[in-house]
Design a protein around this nucleic acid. Structure first.
Lengths: 177, 177
DNA sequence: GTCTATAGATTGATAGAC
DNA sequence: GTCTATCAATCTATAGAC
């Protein structure tokens, strides 16, 4: 499962063969099919893994007392991953984009995870007393997804560092200090 | 060629077979290989087509007298395409993201087109007298790419309309009025 | 549960008639 | 230049020994 998530991110779902995943996980190809009956089920499990990771992350952030600090820490985490983003893009955003090109229902599962992130961010802005929390959440998450695309396409992690700084200031402004 | 660009956008490069393109173009499969020796050459031609379209677009925008109006018109064009973006994402951004998962050199060609867009936008901000034109260009293009990802993942063209309105106001502010 | 071997289907690419 | 037929390689999925 861990190997699948990593290889899907690095190579993309469509370009990845089950042989690639079996090799990365150091198991024979046949074993993959013992736990996942089809490639689609592996993709579904990968989406679920991203969902679980988001839950873990927001649970950690929720231990911080200040909503603005939670958002700044979220952004800092994105910036920390800038080298990976420069090489392979946002681990979840690139997966969601790829699933949207398919006609099965897996793109809806990806939408739920993205929705969960938006809802959590919106909740932070709402706690800061912002009536436009929903729009601010879209703005923040879109900024991250967009700078991931640019960072990846131009292979420049510095782009994400710079935009991260900007987002930090922006959060301070929105939080009203 | 037109069929290839459209099908690559709708299905993604990896999911698209040359048979799909031949069918969309209403020509036999063999004919595709008469004009393009490999699938990679078709992808390369698709990137070149996006590059040419960008040149056409910026040339049109350059006929407008005011740099701020050029940027507003650029954003308006993106918003006009929101139904397509909701279904298939940004025609160029999704292509660039997909090419970044490959190890051939086509991702560098995509980077050049993205760079060309950034340079043109930067030039507009520079003409508005902004010393931070490069950072503003990244911010604007990233905002578009990000809202394309969200619009596509959530299948909600309204997101792009709302963010387009925000960008319009933002451009007005940056232009200093 | 693990692993090898292979079936069955798809696809990129080519040969060759017209 | 156009079109049909097909090869060769790859990949998903399964069968079956251990």
């Amino acid at each position: 499962m861990r190997a699948a998530v990593r290889i899907f991110h690095e190579q993309g779902v469509e370009k990845t063969t089950l042989g690639d995943i079996a090799r990365a996980a150091e198991v024979p190809l046949g074993n993959v099919y013992y736990y996942f009956k089809t490639k689609d089920q592996l993709v579904e499990a990968a989406v679920a893994a991203h969902c679980a990771q988001l839950d873990t992350l927001t649970a950690q952030l929720d231990t911080l007392p200040d909503p603005a600090e939670r958002l700044r820490t979220l952004v800092a985490g994105w910036v920390d991953q800038r080298e990976t983003a420069a090489r392979f893009g946002c681990p979840f955003g690139t997966l969601a984009s790829e699933l949207d090109k398919r006609d099965d229902g897996l793109d809806r599962a990806a939408a739920q995870v993205m929705r969960a992130l938006l809802d959590w961010v919106e909740s932070q802005f709402a706690q800061l007393g912002r009536a436009d929390a929903a729009a601010l959440a879209v703005e923040l998450v879109a900024a991250y997804q967009g700078m991931s695309v640019l960072t990846n396409t131009l292979r420049d992690p510095g782009l994400m560092a710079a935009q991260g700084e900007r987002l930090r200031s922006w959060i301070d402004g929105v939080a009203g200090r």
